[in-house]
Design a protein around this nucleic acid. Sequence first.
DNA 1: GTCTATAGTTTGATAGAC
DNA 2: GTCTATCAAACTATAGAC
Lengths: 196, 196
Amino acid sequence: MDKKNEILKAAFDIFCERGYHLSVAELARAVNIKTPSLYSHFESKDEIIELVIRDEIQRYYRCLTEKILEVKNLSCRDSMKSLYVHVIDYFSEDNRLRFWRAIPFIQNQQLKNISAQLIEDNDRVFKQQIQQCFSTGQSKGEIRQDVSPGALRLYFCMIQGILDGMLLYPKEPFDLGNADELFEAYWDGIRANGTD
Amino acid sequence: MDKKNEILKAAFDIFCERGYHLSVAELARAVNIKTPSLYSHFESKDEIIELVIRDEIQRYYRCLTEKILEVKNLSCRDSMKSLYVHVIDYFSEDNRLRFWRAIPFIQNQQLKNISAQLIEDNDRVFKQQIQQCFSTGQSKGEIRQDVSPGALRLYFCMIQGILDGMLLYPKEPFDLGNADELFEAYWDGIRANGTD
DNA sequence: GTCTATAGTTTGATAGAC
DNA sequence: GTCTATCAAACTATAGAC
C-alpha cells in the first residue's frame, strides 16, 4: 500500500475516535512520518477528511447495493432479514459506527453539507428498493394487506435504533441473537396470518 | 439568573454545537465576560462540562420519572404511547439531541465514564418500569400472550431509532404525525386481537 | 518525499491590578 | 468578580535543504 492510502486508512481510524478534531500531528505519527510530510500528499487537513468521508460513504453504499442485488430473488422476509443483518454486520466492524455518528459534528460547514448530501442521495435509493420489496411482499401475501401505514418506516427506524444502541451502550457487546429477536418481533407484527 | 448559571446555560448550548471541543474563549464571549473571569466561577473547562452533563442527565431522567408517575394508571397502550411522545418531545427541544449524541465523543476518559455510568444507571430504572407496564398489559389482555420475545426491546429500539433519525436527517423537520404512525405500526404488531 | 526549522494562530490557564 | 497582560502548549501550515 502506498503512503497516501496508508495515511487515509490511519485518518479513518483516528476520525472514528476523535471526529473532526483529529490532529495532523497524531495522524503523521500514526504513519511514521513528520507532520510536514503529510502536505506533500494532501493540501490540507480538510482535504484528507473529505477524502476519508467520501471513501467510507461510497464503500458503505456499494456494499449495500451488492447485497440488494444478491437478495433480489429471495422472499420478502428473507430479503429484509438479510439486509437488516448486513447493515448491522457492516457497522459492527472497526469503528465504522463512530465514524458515521461523528459526521454531524464536523466543524466545517462545507464538509458537513457534502456528507449530508451524499448520504441523503444514496439513502433515498436504498429506501426505494426496500419499499418495492415490501410492496411485493404484500401483494404476494407474505405481509398482511391491512398492515399499518408506518410499518415500513418502523423497519428503517429499528435498524437505526439498533445502531444507535450499539454506540450509546458499547459496554454491552452486541449480540446478533438480540438483533435476531428484534427482527422476529418486527416481522411478527406485519406477517400475514398463517405464514411463518 | 446569576452569572454562574448563565455560564452553564451558555455552555450547554455551545456543547450541543461543538461537543467537547467548545472553547472557553467562545463561552466567555457568549456571556459577555473575558476568558479569565470564567476561572473565578469554575476551576477548569472540564469542571464546566462535567456540571453541564450532570445537569442535563439529571433533568432528563427527572422529567421522565415524573411522566412515568403521571401515566401509571393509564392503560398499557396509553402509557407506552405517552412516554414515547414524551421522550420525542423532550429531545425536540433546543439541541438536546445533539447534546446526548456528543457524549460518546468526549475526549476525556474520566468524563466519558461518569456520563456513561449516569446514563446506564438511570436507564435501567426506566426500562424496568416499562417492562412492568408491558407485563401488566399482557396479563390484562391488551397485548397478545404469544407476542415475540423481542417485542419490548423493539419499543426501546424504535424510540432510539426515531431520535437517531432526527439527528442524522435534520433537514426533514420532525413531524409528530410520523411518530404517531410509527407507534401505531408498533402497537398493531403486539396488541391482542379484537382490541383497538 | 521526507526532513528541520519556523511562522502564525488558538488553545486552556495563571498572575496580579482594580 | 472582572479585567489586562501573559504563559506554555498545541494547532495547521509553509519555506527550504537534502
